[in-house]
């Protein structure tokens, strides 16, 4: 392996940070969801890199990553359904404009 493990982890950390920034700075709920997908991918890169370098003989990391992708699909389906349903009601999916309730 030409690339040392910390390189992969650094890339994953960067992707995680970028995703987190997206989550914290976006106003649009779908934009937030995009950031969340980036974070999940960062975790997946971590998992696969750890699998490759630390437990290459077991399947653990790869299987976990496959499950994460499946869960992400379920989460995206549920989340987008909720967002679309909110959009139908309010004609907005900007999180800070959803303010019927305060405190």
């Amino acid at each position: 392996m030409a690339i040392p493990l910390p390189w992969w982890l650094t890339v994953a950390a960067a992707l995680f940070a970028i995703g987190l920034y997206g989550v914290l700075s976006r106003r649009n709920a779908i934009g937030v969801l995009l950031g969340i997908e980036l974070m999940l991918n960062a975790a997946n890169i971590n998992l696969v890199a750890f699998w490759r370098y630390i437990t290459p003989q077991a399947l653990t990391g790869q299987v976990f990553a496959i499950f994460v992708i499946g869960i992400a699909a379920a989460e995206a389906a549920a989340g987008l359904a909720i967002i679309i349903s909110a959009y139908r009601r309010r004609r907005t999916v900007v999180v800070d404009e959803l303010d019927t309730m305060r405190w």
Binding site: V32, A78, A86, R89, R90, V95, T100, M101
Partner: peptide, 9 residues
């Protein structure tokens, strides 16, 4: 729906 969006996010 609004509560659900916030909860989800």
């Amino acid at each position: 729906t609004e509560g659900a969006v916030k909860y989800f996010v």
